Amino acid sequence: MKIRLVNNGVFTPIEDIAQTLAPAHAGFYWIDADVEDLAVLQPLFGMHDLAVEDCLSEEEQRPKIEIYESHYFIVINSIRFDDEEIFLRALNIFLGRHFIITVTKQKINELRSLKPLLWEQEVSRPDYFLYHLVDIVVDNYFLVGDRIDNRIETLEEDILMHTKKSHLNEIIGLRGEILWLKKVLGPQRDVIATLNKKDLKLIDDQLQKYFSDIYENALKIAESFDTYRDLMGNLREAYQSSVSNRANEIMRVFTAITTIFMPLTFITGIYGMNFDFIPGLHLRMGSYILLGIMLLLGIGMFFIFRKKEWL
């Protein structure tokens, strides 16, 4: 657990947690905690039992906002895209008048990238801290969306050039993650809408228009993932069409080969019959002449098929 006094974007480490129970003369306290620290924090800050239970739960938490008398409990999901797999990590936030507590189970990159922004904006209020944090989290969805878009384009080119069975697994896996992510975007968008529209006493009225901008971005992200879902459907159709065309191409080659060998089989069939009088049967060079005729016939049919673009 790390405790800092934030005043005009400047961070001052605090050793004694009891100091955070009373408002600072200037600025606010930011407590960056792990779930194990809740046993100490809950009685000090009067955290609601249900909020603490949500933080400790092993189940995936939906984004939400809970309004309590002395604080707000907010859950939003940070997003990462590593090794072609999407990860969501819950970011639990307790917002009070003079403090903000972030509780996470894993490291959240947005918290580290937030520090220089707070210094640049000279932030001295916890609600402005919340605004910048939510803004960074939402912006990262655009970055992940761009990577998904690039992955779809690359996959489409690979399918058109060299279709493989592994492409179908990639399509199914990526489409499943996009659909799963869409289910998260709805509740997260609702949380931002609440921060934007609802009258919240712990959030400055001037922040409403700023949260409105974040809400518009959240809508754009939801629309983008609708598009990605449709593109994955088109990609699957392209894969099936490519596989079908490849099968047809293979069947066309096999059919051509069979057709070429049909007259050759016909000739060998005639000379394989047990008759004494067959033209050329007793010629000294008869077998070579026959093989030459068969070779010329096969080559001739091959070039005829190539000319007609059947091969």
Rank of each mutant, 00 (worst) to 15 (best):
99 F>Y: 03
145 G>W: 03
74 I>S: 05
57 S>E: 13
68 Y>G: 14
130 L>V: 01
82 D>K: 13
116 P>H: 00
89 R>E: 15
127 D>R: 06
123 V>N: 01
64 K>D: 10
128 Y>F: 11
120 E>H: 02
84 E>V: 05
99 F>R: 03
68 Y>V: 13
65 I>D: 07
136 I>P: 15
54 D>S: 10
58 E>Q: 10
109 N>K: 12
73 F>C: 03
64 K>L: 11
54 D>V: 07
71 H>S: 12
59 E>Y: 03
140 N>R: 12
137 V>C: 06
117 L>A: 00
137 V>G: 02
95 L>P: 15
135 D>F: 00
118 L>P: 00
56 L>G: 06
144 V>Y: 04
77 N>R: 15
58 E>S: 02
71 H>N: 15
136 I>N: 10
100 I>A: 00
144 V>D: 11
131 Y>Q: 01
132 H>N: 05
85 E>Q: 12
132 H>I: 04
112 R>M: 13
135 D>A: 02
59 E>S: 01
134 V>S: 11
99 F>P: 15
87 F>I: 00
135 D>T: 02
85 E>N: 12
86 I>Q: 08
71 H>M: 12
71 H>D: 13
72 Y>Q: 10
83 D>I: 01
86 I>S: 12
125 R>H: 14
139 D>Y: 04
84 E>K: 09
139 D>R: 13
80 R>C: 14
73 F>Q: 05
58 E>W: 01
92 N>P: 15
120 E>A: 03
66 E>S: 14
63 P>W: 09
135 D>Y: 00
53 E>K: 14
